[in-house]
Computed example of a mutant assay.
Amino acid sequence: MKATGDDVRTVVASLPETTEQFAWGMPVFKVAGKLFLTLPEDETSMAVRCPIVDRDELVLAEPAKFWIATHEAGNPWVRVRLAALDDREELTAIITDSWRLAAPRALLEKTD
């Protein structure tokens, strides 16, 4: 799959209470005001929330797909190369997981 920033936007738009803004020179996406995804590197990758333990395992297992930006090393974020994703399901799963990590509990309860 050769995912694009537009593919990311389509998935994000399907999730409740999301907004797109522009910050730090790139598009950023929030749920209920809380950041859950950015589109750096000219929208060829995305940065998503991911628990550090899981993130480290992802990077070790699939370094061509996932990596950690130096300035995010101590934070629960992982970078994802959009062109390396297997399919739309994987893109959707990664974005939804990040959204769920940032969404308020009341919103999660309402959507589950």
Rank of each mutant, 00 (worst) to 15 (best):
V31I: 00
F36N: 06
V48A: 09
E43F: 02
T44V: 08
R55M: 09
E41Q: 13
F66E: 06
W67K: 04
M46V: 11
C50F: 03
A64D: 10
F29G: 06
D56A: 08
A23N: 00
M46Q: 02
F36I: 04
D42K: 12
V48K: 01
T44W: 00
A47Y: 00
D54H: 09
A23P: 00
T44M: 05
R49V: 11
D42R: 09
M26N: 01
G33V: 15
A69F: 05
G33H: 14
P27I: 00
W67Q: 04
V48N: 03
P63A: 07
K65S: 12
C50A: 08
A32T: 15
A23I: 02
W24F: 11
C50G: 08
A32E: 12
L39Y: 08
I52A: 15
D54E: 12
G25H: 04
V59W: 00
L60K: 15
P63E: 01
S45N: 03
V53Q: 15
V28H: 01
M26L: 08
A32K: 15
F22N: 10
D54R: 10
L35H: 07
K30D: 13
A64N: 12
E41R: 10
I52E: 12
P40V: 12
M46H: 08
L37W: 00
F29N: 05
D54W: 03
V59E: 10
K30A: 11
W67Y: 11
R55T: 01
I68S: 09
F22I: 03
V53E: 15
P63I: 13
A32C: 14
L35A: 05
F29Y: 10
W24T: 04
L39D: 01
F29R: 07
K65G: 10
C50V: 04
P27H: 06
P40C: 10
R49C: 08
K34F: 10
V28Q: 02
E57C: 13
E43A: 09
I68V: 11
V59P: 00
P51M: 02
I68Y: 05
W67P: 04
G25V: 02
F66G: 04
D56T: 13
E43S: 01
L35G: 00
A23R: 00
L39K: 02
L60P: 05
I52P: 05
W67C: 11
G25D: 08
V53M: 15
D54C: 11
G33S: 14
V59C: 14
E43H: 07
